[in-house]
């Protein structure tokens, strides 16, 4: 129970920090919302990582949701922001359901590459069809009403900040419950033994499809929120580098617990802000170094470190990362 307690305190402290920072320094609202969006997207990517699968294309769902929001907001400017978000998530779920049917047949590198390929097709098509998508310049989105109320820029951002924070907390809890449910544990079983899943009467593809749908929806939500807070969507929100950043954050934070996604996103945003202020031009290098250090020093990510520190933590999972798929080399 001690571990759960720690995470609760961590969540509350983190949330308060987000709110206080956001209200005290209005410029920090956007980076905080963006960080939370990265965290939400990473929740989805972390689910795939628990199944041992790395997708270098998940940002496509942020892209699909973001452009859905943009198209709808431009076609019907009176549509409420909440409806736009729901529509964006719906579109990404729909796309995830269809793409999922195909990609869950693949594992490892092929799973990663197929997702990458599909996202690259989407990315390049959006970039080229200027007339519809605005090409690489993207599409502007005028500030919509939220729950029927019109806001000034500052008010809009504050509402988005609070809303995103609440969504992040709610989804974090939900995803953590999913990780520990029968379905979520079976998902983690895909990483270690699909043959056994099959001989338990379960379809590994179905289990992975469920997780995939989940992850597509989460990344989609982050994309919809991202589009609204930026007031702009560009193809870059679906680039493979963005997908790589999600995986990066998932590793950085650790996928042992849902909160890892947000801890990872916080560190990620801080490195980015720090680099933007003091080391312009080498922020990717800083990220790369951070990632290498994490992999070498704490392969279970920040969450793994925290769990090790708290003495009463149950040694449920020695390390979601540390062990390679164990091969049984023994013969009779």
């Amino acid at each position: 129970m001690a571990r759960l307690f720690d995470i609760r305190i961590l969540t509350i402290a983190g949330s308060l920090l987000c709110l206080i920072l956001g209200l005290a320094f209005p410029w920090s609202k956007t980076p905080i919302i963006v960080g939370l969006c990265f965290g939400i997207a990473t929740l989805g990517v972390a689910a795939m990582v628990r199944a041992g699968q790395v997708s270098f294309g998940h940002a496509m769902y942020a892209c699909i949701a973001g452009y859905t929001v943009a198209f709808l907001a431009r076609a019907w400017p009176q549509l409420d922001g909440l409806l736009l978000i729901l529509a964006g998530v719906g579109a990404s779920l729909f796309a995830g359901a269809i793409v999922g049917v195909f990609v869950v047949r693949y594992r490892g590198i092929f799973f990663g590459m197929l997702n990458l390929a599909i996202s690259m097709v989407l990315y390049s098509v959006i970039g080229k069809f200027y007339a519809i998508t605005g090409g690489t310049d993207g599409l502007r989105i005028n500030r919509p009403t939220l729950l029927g109320i019109e806001f000034e820029r500052a008010g809009f951002e504050t509402v988005l900040l609070v809303g995103t924070l609440l969504a992040a907390i709610g989804l974090g809890i939900l995803v953590q419950r999913y990780f520990q449910s029968a379905s979520g544990e079976a998902l983690a079983g895909i990483k270690t033994n699909e043959t056994r899943l099959e001989y338990l009467g379960l379809s590994a593809r179905r289990v992975l499809w469920d997780g995939y749908l989940f992850s597509a929806g989460l990344v989609g939500l982050s994309g919809a929120l991202f589009a609204l807070v930026q007031g702009l969507v560009t193809p870059d929100i679906g680039s493979w580098l963005r997908s790589g950043e999600f995986v990066f954050i998932a590793i950085l934070g650790g996928s042992g617990h849902a909160i890892g996604a947000f801890l990872g996103a916080a560190v990620f945003e801080l490195v980015k802000l720090f680099a933007a202020a003091y080391m312009t031009g080498i922020w990717q290098m800083l990220l790369g170094i951070t990632l290498i250090v994490v992999i070498l020093v704490a392969p279970e990510g920040i969450v793994g470190l925290l769990m090790k520190k708290s003495a009463l933590a149950t040694p449920r999972r020695k390390s979601p990362w540390g062990t390679r798929r164990e091969e049984n080399k023994w013969t009779p």
């Binding site: 999913y178 029968a182 979520g184 544990e185 079976a186 899943l197 338990l200």
Partner: peptide, 24 residues
């Protein structure tokens, strides 16, 4: 399931027997 505990391995089996895996 080498990354799961012994008890969890059996729990997953028992859950699988019920057919539909719960989500939350």
């Amino acid at each position: 399931f080498l990354d799961h505990t012994v008890r969890q391995c059996l729990e997953i089996s028992a859950a699988a027997r019920q057919g539909r895996l719960s989500f939350f």
